[in-house]
C-alpha cells in the first residue's frame, strides 16, 4: 500500500509539487491570519517555510538543491526551476501599465548601475578585510555580492579557485534570502508603494529571485515592475564583473 503510494508520488513529480506547494501556501495563509494577525504576508511565510524545508532537505541529503534532492520532492526542482520561474515572471508583465514603466525608465537605469557597483565595492571590501587581498578573489567575492550568478560567472572568467567561487555563491545566496525575507519588513522604510519605487528597488536589490519573492510578499502588483529591471541586473553584472570592475580592483590593489 505505502509502496504503491510512493510509486504514484515518484512518477508524478510535478503534480506532487503542485499539491505540496498548495499545502504550504494554505498553512502559511492560516499562520499569517491567526499567528501574525495578517501583519506578515502569507507569501513571505510560505517562502520562509520553503527555505526552511530547503535547509532540512540539504542537511538531510548533503545535496545542493535543498528539498529537491529528496526523490519524493524532485518535482519541486521542476516547478521552481529556471524554466517555470521565468515563464511565470514573464506572465506577470501582462499586468504592467506601459505608461508607468516608461515614466521610470531613466531612474531604472541609474538604479541598475548603482545596484551593481555598490554591492561590488562592499563585497570586495569585506573580502579584503578578511585577508582575500588578491584582485581575483576580491573581484569574485564582490561579484557574488551582486548576485549568485554574477559571482561564479565572473570567477570563472578571471580564474578564481573553487573555494572562492563557493564563497562568492554563498554571498549571493545570503543576499537573495535576506532580500526575500527582509523586503516585506523594510517596505515602509524603502517606500515601496509605487511602480517607480519598485523599479528602483529592482535595480538596486538585484537578484531576480530575491526581488521577485520579496515584492511578491510585499505587494503582488509591484512584482512585474521590480523584476523587469532586476532581470537586466544579472546581465549587467556579468558584463561589468570580469571587465571594468576587475580592472578597477586590479589597478587599486596592484
Amino acid at each position: 500500500m505505502i509502496e504503491m503510494l510512493e510509486k504514484t508520488v515518484l512518477h508524478n513529480g510535478l503534480v506532487t509539487a503542485f499539491a505540496v506547494v498548495g499545502l504550504i501556501m494554505y498553512v502559511s495563509m492560516l499562520l499569517s491570519r491567526y499567528l501574525t494577525m495578517g501583519r506578515v504576508h502569507g507569501s513571505a511565510i510560505a517562502i520562509l517555510i520553503g527555505l526552511g524545508l530547503a535547509y532540512w532537505g540539504g542537511s538531510h541529503t548533503g545535496g545542493q538543491k535543498g528539498l529537491a534532492d529528496l526523490s519524493l520532492f524532485s518535482g519541486i526542482g521542476l516547478m521552481g526551476g529556471a524554466m517555470l520561474r521565468d515563464f511565470a515572471i514573464v506572465a506577470t508583465a501582462f499586468e504592467v501599465q506601459a505608461t508607468e514603466a516608461r515614466k521610470a525608465g531613466m531612474i531604472g537605469v541609474v538604479a541598475l548601475v548603482l545596484g551593481t557597483v555598490l554591492p561590488f565595492i562592499v563585497g570586495a571590501g569585506v573580502a579584503y578585510a578578511f585577508g582575500y587581498t588578491d584582485a581575483v578573489s576580491m573581484t569574485t567575492i564582490g561579484a557574488g555580492a551582486v548576485t549568485y550568478i554574477v559571482g561564479p560567472v565572473t570567477g570563472a572568467a578571471i580564474g578564481a579557485s573553487s573555494e572562492i567561487m563557493a564563497l562568492s555563491i554563498a554571498t549571493g545566496l545570503v543576499k537573495a534570502i535576506l532580500v526575500m525575507v527582509g523586503t516585506p519588513v523594510a517596505a515602509g522604510f524603502l517606500r515601496l508603494k509605487t511602480p517607480r519605487s519598485a523599479m528602483v528597488f529592482g535595480g538596486l536589490a538585484g537578484t531576480v529571485s530575491g526581488v521577485s519573492a520579496g515584492l511578491a510578499a510585499t505587494d503582488r502588483k509591484l512584482v512585474p515592475y521590480g523584476t523587469l529591471v532586476a532581470t537586466f541586473h544579472t546581465g549587467l553584472g556579468c558584463l561589468m564583473g570580469p571587465s571594468v570592475l576587475y580592472f578597477a580592483v586590479k589597478s587599486l590593489v596592484a
Binding site: 501556501m25 507569501s43 538543491k65 529537491a68 516547478m79 545566496l173 529571485s209 519573492a213
Partner: peptide
C-alpha cells in the same frame, strides 16, 4: 508566480 517562487525557495542551497 508566488507558488513557483515558494518551490524555488525550497530548492536553494541554504546549507551552503
Amino acid at each position: 508566480y508566488i507558488p513557483v517562487v515558494v518551490a524555488m525557495a525550497a530548492q536553494q542551497n541554504v546549507v551552503a
